[in-house]
Design a protein around this nucleic acid. Structure first.
Lengths: 167, 167
RNA sequence: AGACACCCAGUUUC
DNA sequence: GAAACTGGGTGTCT
């Protein structure tokens, strides 16, 4: 018995690279037909500063958390097969390829600088390992045009962005 | 009587280090005000393979050739004072410092390997010596951001790159 | 190990 | 049109 969960994820960051940027992440869980459930999250307003890359990684984390959560609510214990599709080649490569090198080299880039967003990359890998014990996770890159569902949800979340009281 | 010529030079190589790379070099000759004339050249498509370093050296050669050419078209015989500014520390060091060592040691690097692009380095030095008989040449390193004029011309040349018939 | 360049890729924006 | 977030690499020398 195999239980499939197919996610699409996306992150967005308005004002990316500028002071005051705001970011959100979205994950869509597809059901039969073309319908889906979605979750969105707003990233911390600063500390650390919001960027597009952090948003994309956070979206992956949300999907992984959701998969675990949903699995725990099941009555049976099927084998899990999670697919996460996203349009950030960078985020996917970080988690699926580069992380192994970084774990060995102490988290330095080819240019000799410390790898950024290490916290989120490690959190994603931790969650992935948790799932690997009950199934498997597969990541897939898709072009922007095929990621409209998650993109829309992201932008809705940004339209509703709640600034902290001190901002 | 001193006649000054101020050049900025740059080289660019799209696909540097990959098969099929294309490269171009540009030299800008500044006049009064902020205006300048420019020349560009596309490097051989292969034989030898185009690299960023060859492009940077070729740009310096173009400036030196241009200076000599312009001097010969003058009616009088003033003393020449040529300044060549470029953002390749490597190319400038090759011509202004390391070349003296290489001429003595038979063109070997510290690592014991033969110096690359020796043909272009020697050609630049030959032209420089020619100018030294009627004036002087001064090289100056400038950061990338201050070399936008030559950079733009280089990229225009690459946009118009004419591939050889057999490519 | 260092330096300067030259890129390649995707995303996020303004 | 211009810019930021981020990674992978080569060209070359000291």
């Amino acid at each position: 018995m195999v239980y499939r969960m197919d996610f699409k994820v996306d992150g967005a960051c308005r004002g990316n690279g500028r002071p005051g940027a705001i970011a959100a992440a979205a994950a869509c869980l597809y059901t039969r037909g073309n319908t889906y459930y979605s979750r969105t999250e707003q990233l911390p307003y600063d500390d650390p500063v919001a960027t597009n890359d952090r948003a994309e990684l956070q979206a992956i984390i949300m999907a992984l958390e959701w998969a675990l959560e949903k699995y725990q609510s099941l009555d049976s214990c099927p084998r899990l097969k999670v697919t996460i599709s996203g349009d950030s080649e960078h985020a996917i490569n970080s988690i699926t390829k580069w992380v192994y090198k970084w774990q060995e080299n102490g988290w330095y880039t080819t240019a000799g600088t410390p790898v950024k967003n290490r916290d989120l990359i490690q959190e994603a890998c931790r969650l992935e390992n948790e799932i690997e014990e009950i199934g498997e996770v597969h990541y897939e890159w898709i072009p922007r045009e095929k990621n409209m569902d998650a993109d829309e949800k992201c932008n809705e979340a940004l339209d509703d962005f709640e600034y902290p009281y001190w901002a």
